[in-house]
Structure formats: C-alpha cells, structure tokens
C-alpha cells in the first residue's frame, strides 16, 4: 500500500477512535433507558412544584364556605379558579393569604355578555350597563350568587 495511504488511514483511524471515545464518555448515563432520551429527564420534569393544590384541600379548613358553594350555581367551580394557586397558603395559612378578587372586572371575565358564550352554560350580563359602576359582590355572594 502506498505510504501516503497508510498515513491517511492512520489519521482517520485516530479520528474515528477519538469519536468513539468521546461518544462513550459524553453520552449521559440514563440515555437510551426508555428510548432516545435521558431517562432521568422524567424525574426532572416531575420534580416541579405543584402550585395548585387538589380539590379537597380547601374544604378541610373552609368547610362552611365549601358547603355554601355546593348548594348553588358555582358548585362545579374549583376554589382555585377564582382564588389562585393554594400551595403557599397550605404551607403557612397565616402568612400567605389567597387572592380575594373584589373588583367588577374579575366577575366580568366570565359573565360579560358575549355571543360566543353558550347561553345554557353561564348567565351573562351587559358588562357596562348592568348596575353600572357597582361592585358585583355588593349584591351577589360569590359562593352563592343567586339567593
């Protein structure tokens, strides 16, 4: 074999060899465990903190409010839909208070009249004209909106 070809094969052999070594050392440990991805990634993704707590946690302390809510139209709505995520409040109920939306704009988000809103799913009002300027909870108990 001509000398130049021998030298070239040496160079290429070295290059391929180093690639194999690099692949061996740089491939993450849990790769190929379940498929073409790092198996550890599943644990890393599930380690994220859950901010919204589960449905029953609120009723454990606030049972009277929960009972009122269950007797009216808002019974199918989760507490955290209006009050926001509860994970901080569960840890330290005194220090971390939940959101208590008081303003008109909040209720309007769902109840403003919009032709795209199915009438049988939700009662809708004219966002501007209905009791103009008033705050909703003046007349409606948010946990029992229809007395």
């Amino acid at each position: 074999m001509p000398l130049q070809v021998k030298r070239l094969l040496l160079v290429f052999g070295f290059f391929i060899g180093s690639m194999i070594v690099l692949i061996h050392f740089l491939t993450p440990d849990s790769f190929y465990q379940f498929g073409h991805y790092r198996g550890k990634a599943l644990d890393e993704i599930s380690n994220h903190e859950a901010k919204y707590v589960d449905v029953k946690s609120c009723a454990m302390c606030h049972d009277s409010i929960a009972a009122v809510k269950d007797s009216s139209f808002h019974k199918s709505i989760n507490c955290e839909t209006c009050h926001g995520p509860g994970y901080k409040h569960i840890e330290d109920p005194e220090k971390n208070k939940m959101d208590k939306p008081q303003d008109r704009e909040f209720c309007i988000i769902c109840h403003a009249k919009n032709p795209a809103r199915p009438q049988k799913e939700i009662k809708q009002i004219d966002a501007v004209e209905h009791n103009k300027g008033e705050v909703c909870i003046t007349c409606h108990n948010p946990h029992k909106p229809w007395e």
Binding site: S46, H48, N78, T81
Partner: peptide, 19 residues
C-alpha cells in the same frame, strides 16, 4: 402537568375550568 400527574393531581388547566 406531568409533575402533577405523578402526584395524583389533575393538570391545572383541567382543574380550574368552571364548566
């Protein structure tokens, strides 16, 4: 919300949907 599924919770968007 894979992290919630693993803890036995529902995804956040499913949970807060009022209807």
């Amino acid at each position: 919300c894979y992290h919630r599924l693993k803890k036995g919770l529902d995804p956040a968007c499913m949970m807060v949907c009022p209807t």
